[in-house]
């Protein structure tokens, strides 16, 4: 019984620290990411789309969606120049990474929005896996 009581105390302390971290941790993940997400079917209805591949350089070199530009957090400073050169502000920007579990696309989309003021930026739901399922790229997840 003593152990259970102690376990409860430890859990409560850990829970409180977690709550504080949620508000104070500089890298705390966002609770709502759905607002940026868009289904592939919806993207295909856009007149045009500016595709961004947020996966690693290695994955991008193995294969990417035709016309997609590589932009990831590891080489942000270098790649952002290419992005600005190629970016079409009239076309919606759609960012994808490897799968639904991957958060790189959300990070890139949020950074584009916050740092460059890109308004019509979306994250492809399902990422590369969804593109592969639809036959738009070759192979499974890299």
């Amino acid at each position: 019984m003593k152990s259970v009581r102690e376990a409860c105390i430890i859990s409560v302390v850990a829970g409180l620290c977690g709550v504080i971290a949620f508000f104070a941790h500089p890298k705390a993940p966002a609770f709502h990411v759905d607002e940026l997400e868009v289904e592939l079917e919806e993207v295909l209805r856009f007149e045009e789309a500016f595709w961004i591949d947020a996966r690693s350089d290695e994955d991008f070199e193995k294969g990417h969606l035709e016309g997609a530009l590589s932009l990831n957090e590891e080489r942000w400073e270098e790649q952002i120049v290419d992005f600005l050169d190629a970016w079409n502000p009239d076309a919606p920007t759609v960012v994808y990474c490897s799968s639904q579990a991957c958060l790189r696309s959300h990070e890139v989309a949020e950074r584009l929005k916050a740092e460059l003021g890109v308004e019509n930026v979306f994250v492809l739901k399902g990422g590369w896996e969804k593109l592969a399922e639809a036959g738009m790229v070759e192979g499974a997840n890299q």
Partner: peptide
């Protein structure tokens, strides 16, 4: 992560061992 930190600290410093 905080649960792991608390459990780890309790096991290392030998406090609330049963709960940890």
């Amino acid at each position: 992560p905080y649960l792991e930190l608390c459990v780890g600290a309790c096991l290392v410093f030998r406090v609330m061992k049963g709960g940890a």
